[in-house]
Write a protein that binds this DNA or RNA. Structure first.
Length: 553
RNA sequence: GCGCCAGUAGCUCAGUUGGAUAGAGCAACGGACUUCUAAUCCGUAGGCCGAGGGUUCGAAUCCUUCCUGGCGCGCCA
């Protein structure tokens, strides 16, 4: 719809030049059309006359007059007005808007999908929590946002892969291994002195007990090998928990990428060699550094420590180089906001290798403040005082939980009060939206009871839809695809949430004011058609968020 | 000290990438169930968009200086 109008304006502009009513000959790159807040200003407003005032050296209103003269008689438009400082306001014919109903019916579950991202390969890496303990609430937010970002990108036609990076190498997991081993010794009756930096939580004891039951006591095994055994066991077990938790949340990954495999396959060495070859790394005081300051970082960064061990950064560099070698055009990382200091060095690394830094997009997910009855929960993996994501999902439900996490822009902090989220049962916006869907289903059930046949595509008399709220609903549906594209290009799934709330509100209002099943069969058919289009769009949008669309509530 | 994010109604937040009179939801107040589901709807009230300065036809939005809150600034992961 917007495209057609834009095309018409472009043609009108050309006509003005041909006829000499406008002279600059400048063709703007993009003609901006926006949906005005105030419905009195029409369906679309165009600011072209104002932006052209400078090059054209004419008053905006004069330019607008010339354009409007050229646009007269266009069948798309019912009314064209010049308003305010020089806006051109378009009101489209109702028949244009009701055309989208047929598009919704025809496309069904695919309505809203587009091809703007066609042929572009995108990887979304998210969660990627260390496999040293169960997921907590902060991971949950990143998980849902990452999943929804991937979903809107897919809907916009991008070729998307979801990946989880498993930090199964390095210090943290070997601390886990040592912690398990110590608990194992404890089970064997040894008095142990549990270190400060060990994992104190109870699940480590459970892992030790399970290890003992399955693999025995490790009595004659040398310490380093024993720790390694425990590490592998612990990582595998915990990854199992994590993937179960994510499944419960409706999230699955195309690939789980092991950090350890980077080392096993010598990929880290290989990528570091490439950096050296390009003169991007240098030795200093026995360590190997990456010269990130040449590309906007404020310090150079260590890749190999003077004791010969690799930093985390080294494997991250190798991992991201490898991502691009796999052929992704764009790589999206979803991180906790506390890692934001890491972005400049990653972008610097890419720039050094000749990639435009924009190819890597880092989404920072701000903290979740977990509360219960207004009291803050102090979280810490090692202290053992935390609520797992699983417990939260069990307590407040998957739909409410996902919806809640997606309601805000990810770069603002989120207070999550468990009692509030549960208590909100009737006030929670997720039910409001789901209820709208269930209500349409209920109308359909009633229609079937009364022997009314569902309307068929192409056999509906749109002219029976005469009310302003019906037209407004059709316009809202027409906006859906563009909203999804915007959410995808900006990585902002919360737009889908706000759209859903608007559409549901419009529907509820309509429902309360008008009956769908009325005496006149043609009107009944037209209204059934309209509300079922609404149902389809509600379901499609909820699907993007990973929230269910119940038929009955 | 330097950097990142945020600051909009009493509370929680949107704000179409610079557009016209700044919007929702809670909370408050007043109404609507003999109807396809009241988990709903209708109405009232609520504002110095953190503060100052700048950019222009036009600023909550862009630039700048402050203020407040959160988070970072290791040869930790």
């Amino acid at each position: 719809m917007k495209k057609q109008l834009r095309q018409a304006i472009k043609a009108a502009l050309q006509e003005c030049y041909d006829q000499g009513t406008l002279n600059s000959g400048v063709l703007p790159e993009e003609i901006q059309l926006e949906i005005p807040k105030n419905p009195d200003h029409g369906d679309f407003a165009c600011n072209l006359a104002m932006t052209m005032a400078k090059v054209e050296r004419k008053a905006p209103r004069k330019i607008a007059e010339a354009l409007v003269a050229a646009l007269q008689g266009n069948p798309l438009c019912e009314q064209i007005e010049i308003a305010g400082p020089g806006f051109i306001n378009f009101r489209l014919a109702a028949s244009c808007w009701y055309g989208v109903l047929d598009q919704v019916m025809q496309a069904g579950a695919d309505f809203g999908c587009s091809r703007v991202g066609e042929g572009i390969r995108v990887q979304v890496e998210f969660v990627s929590a260390n496999p040293t303990g169960p997921l907590h609430i902060g991971h949950g937010r990143g998980a849902v946002v990452g999943d929804a970002v991937a979903a809107v990108l897919q809907a916009a036609g991008f070729d998307v892969q979801r990946e989880y990076y498993v930090n199964d190498a390095g210090n943290q997991v070997s601390i886990l291994g040592r912690s398990i081993l110590l608990r194992l010794r404890e089970l064997q009756g040894e008095a142990i002195d549990f270190p400060e930096d060990g994992y104190q939580a109870n699940y480590v004891r459970e892992l030790a007990a399970k290890f003992r039951a399955e693999q025995g006591d490790l009595t004659d095994v040398p310490e380093t090998a024993a720790i390694e055994h425990c590490t592998r066991f612990g990582v595998a077990e915990i990854l199992e928990w994590i993937s179960e938790d994510l499944r419960a949340f409706g999230i699955s990954f195309d690939r789980w990428y092991s950090e350890k495999s980077l080392y096993d396959l010598k990929l880290v060495d290989k990528e570091l060699a490439k950096l050296k070859e390009r003169g991007l790394s240098f030795e200093h005081e026995g360590a190997l550094w990456l010269k990130t300051t040449d590309f906007g970082d404020d310090k150079d960064r260590v890749l190999i420590k003077s004791d010969g061990s690799m930093t985390y950064f080294a494997s991250d560099v190798a991992y991201h180089m490898e991502k691009f070698e796999r052929g992704f055009d764009r790589v999206i990382d979803v991180w906790g906001a506390d890692h934001h200091g890491y972005i400049p060095r990653m972008k610097a690394m890419l720039a050094g290798l000749g990639h435009p830094p924009e190819d890597l997009e880092v989404l920072l997910i701000q903290m979740v403040n977990l509360l219960r009855d207004g009291q803050p929960f102090v979280m810490g993996k090692r202290s053992g005082n935390f609520i797992t994501l699983r417990e939260v999902i069990n307590e407040v439900g998957r739909d409410a939980c996902r919806f809640f996490f997606l309601m805000r822009r990810c770069d603002s902090q989120l207070d999550f009060d468990l009692e509030l989220a549960k208590q909100q049962n009737s006030d929670n916006p997720v039910y409001y939206v789901q209820y709208a869907h269930a209500r349409v289903c209920s109308i359909n059930r009633k229609a079937t009871e009364e022997g009314i046949v569902q309307p068929v595509l192409g056999e509906v008399d749109h002219s029976k839809l005469k009310l302003v709220e019906e037209l407004a609903l059709a316009k809202q549906l027409a906006r859906y695809e563009e909203m999804v594209v915007g959410a995808a290009l900006n990585y902002e799934p919360h737009r889908v949430v706000f759209y859903l709330q608007e559409l549901a509100a419009q529907f509820h209002s309509y429902y309360n004011r008008q009956r769908v099943l009325v005496d006149d069969p043609a009107t009944t058919q037209a209204r059934l058609y309209l509300v079922n289009c609404i149902r389809i769009v509600l379901a499609n949008a909820l699907q993007l968020l990973g929230v269910s669309a119940p038929e009955q509530m």
